[in-house]
Simulated scan of single mutants.
Amino acid sequence: MTKVDDAVRALTGTRFVALTGAGISTDSGIPDYRGPDSPPRNPMTYQQFIGDEAFRRHYWARNHVGWRHMHRTRPNAGHRALVRLEERGLLAGTITQNVDLLHQEAGARNVIDLHGRYDRVVCLSCSQVVSRALLAERLDALNPGFAESAGAVGDIEIAPDADAVISATSHFRPAPCDSCGGVLKPEIVYFGENVPRARVEAAYAMVDDADALLVAGSSLTVMSGLRFVKRAARDGKPVVIVNRGVTRGDAHATVKVDGGTSTVLPELAERLPARGAAPR
């Protein structure tokens, strides 16, 4: 019996929730932070962003290149498998740590974007929210030719938060809020920043209402995602983890499948029976 067999047995007869991380999007061309083949990364912290104008300029220059790549990515087999499970009534909803919106693009209906979304920007002073596409037009006007001179997007390393790894950013001009002149920030939860409480409570409620938890493509290194694994395990619910490599939640797992989500999730979607039926 394989680990996938065990996962099928653990989830059969349940209505479960998925918790996804960067690993589910790697096959869409978005690298993760902590996968076994990932290079070392030092993402900008919330404290750096709000406390230093040079950091903000550096971030927005890189983001101005990187967000275009995110906009062009497409869902992969893992995202589509979760949609099939949702359509069949087996998956109650998805809590994602990703900001790439690929679950929604694949057709998922019930998604909590735990760490925000890359396509919106918020003013830290007046809280006005604008689309990233609209901001791109302003940044292009302030920095004509910058994105093109940074190099073709396909040749630049892109991080999961739409950051692009480029070095020459000192001449970049960020855009202030066009309403109050305040500092703009992507509507993304940075390292060192707290997830909004209402969002956390909604995610807890989703886990509490489900019979089991499926973790897909997350190392669970940060408490932001691990807390939901601990909650499910505390309540005696099956926890199935599908991830390449070790995760911080392995000790709480009913079943751990060491594998890629683009391979394992479609197999689960194929084999999990309707509730009340025998597993395949």
Rank of each mutant, 00 (worst) to 15 (best):
M1C: 10
T2I: 06
K3Q: 13
V8T: 12
V8Y: 13
L11H: 06
R15Q: 14
V17P: 11
T20P: 05
A22G: 08
G23Q: 08
S25D: 08
S25Q: 06
D27S: 12
D27C: 08
G29H: 04
Y33K: 07
R34W: 03
D37A: 15
D37S: 15
D37G: 03
P40F: 05
P40S: 10
R41W: 10
R41D: 14
M44D: 00
M44I: 10
Q47D: 11
Q48Y: 01
A54W: 00
R56M: 06
Y59G: 00
W60A: 00
R62P: 01
R62Q: 13
V65E: 03
G66N: 13
W67T: 15
H71W: 08
P75V: 15
P75L: 07
N76M: 03
N76H: 04
A77P: 13
H79D: 13
A81M: 07
L82S: 06
V83N: 10
E87F: 02
R88N: 08
L91A: 07
L91M: 10
A92Q: 10
T94A: 11
I95E: 07
T96H: 07
T96Y: 05
V99Q: 03
D100G: 08
L102A: 05
L102N: 07
H103W: 08
Q104E: 15
E105F: 07
R109G: 11
D113G: 06
D113V: 09
D113P: 11
L114Y: 10
G116N: 09
R117D: 12
R120D: 09
C126L: 11
S127L: 09
Q128D: 10
R132I: 11
R132G: 14
A133C: 06
L134D: 15
L139F: 06
L142V: 09
L142F: 09
N143G: 05
N143L: 08
P144A: 14
A147N: 12
A147L: 09
A147W: 12
S149I: 04
G151L: 12
D155F: 05
I156Q: 10
P160N: 12
D161A: 08
V165W: 10
A168M: 06
A168G: 08
S170N: 12
H171L: 06
F172R: 00
R173W: 03
A175C: 14
P176H: 14
G181T: 12
V183I: 15
L184A: 11
L184Q: 01
K185L: 02
E187L: 15
V189H: 11
F191S: 10
V195C: 12
R197H: 06
A198P: 06
M206Q: 11
A210W: 02
A210V: 02
L214K: 01
L214A: 03
G225S: 02
L226M: 11
R227N: 00
V229W: 01
R231Q: 04
A233V: 00
A233G: 03
D235I: 00
G236E: 00
P238N: 04
V242T: 12
V242Q: 09
R244T: 15
G245Y: 01
G245M: 03
G249K: 00
G249C: 03
H252K: 03
K256T: 11
K256V: 06
V257G: 10
D258F: 01
D258W: 10
G259M: 14
G259W: 02
G260Q: 13
G260T: 10
T261K: 06
T261L: 13
L265E: 05
L265K: 11
A274T: 02
R280T: 05
R280H: 12
